[in-house]
Amino acid sequence: MRTTMPEPILDFGRSVDSALQRAGGIGLARDAEADYAAADLALKALSQVGMYDIDPRDDLDSAAAAAELCRVAGAQAAPCPVVGIILRDPADKPFALVSDECPIIDHAAAAPLWRAATLSGDVYEARVVQRTGSNLSPFAMKVGLTRLDDEPASPQDVQLALALSAFQLLGTGQQALELAIKHTREREQFGRPLSGFQVIRHSVADLSVGLEGLALLCRFALWQIFTGSSDALPDALAAKHEAQRVVRNVLRMSQQFHGAAGLADEYDISVLARHAQPALRLPTDMTTTLGHLRAAIEERGFEGLYAPEHAHRAALTTGEAR
């Protein structure tokens, strides 16, 4: 058993982190809102550490490297579509999961054309229509979809897109909790650091449990994608749904513990909370993702200690297993 990332992958993550920090860290996201050219600095930093050389479809280690890059990019709110770029097609079109009802892609402006797919596997070509104009998710764009009559999207691409997006959110959540810990240890009220108040201490403990659990669930999903005996869609959806649930809460509470400062753009927590919204809400929001997850588990089971074998599951649906 090895539930943590291999050491070389962690080293790689550290080099991605220092490259992004040297380029400006979370400040890049802030700068890009005023002038999108700042986004190029993030892309350049990521390209120098080898983002374009990783193909997560190759094997588990490559996928782990991609995941670590996405996690660090999430922690630094890197203003570029890392998951899409990492899953680009042979024609260099980035890949995104979309909902066909209201197709939105974060950082869609990074490429003229995208390859897009719905969770059910329908494939489209997507191009930018307009900015959302939202302060909440400044780089999200409405896209227009043209249905391609290709084969359905590769299940591996769909699963990797879900899992990598979960890793990106994980990084955001970990960074948010770090910021909350730092802030509550420094800021004093009533003559003592905020971190001395039990409400805050216990809440931080619970948030840390959520994030540790999410991290394991994400790594488990990657492992299932490459070694599982069956389709890993439920595993990938579980990681994405848990990321939506946990990270939303971590961001909310971490912001709360900053008081009014948590709303001010000069504080990183405020930038993280806004820039995480597209990953939190796309391609489907939490409750809808859970519906997909449930349907996938009902149909395909859920790897564990007591999940019934496939044949038995089929019988469950028809009622023969009573």
Binding site: T3, T4, L214, L216, E242, R294
Partner: peptide, 24 residues
């Protein structure tokens, strides 16, 4: 309700993996 059942299965997996990590 079926959604909550699915989520509960995920939480059992989370608890299991956290236990494994402690053992490790």
């Amino acid at each position: 309700l079926r959604d909550r059942w699915a989520d509960a299965l995920v939480q059992t997996r989370v608890a299991r993996l956290l236990a494994y990590r402690t053992v490790e």
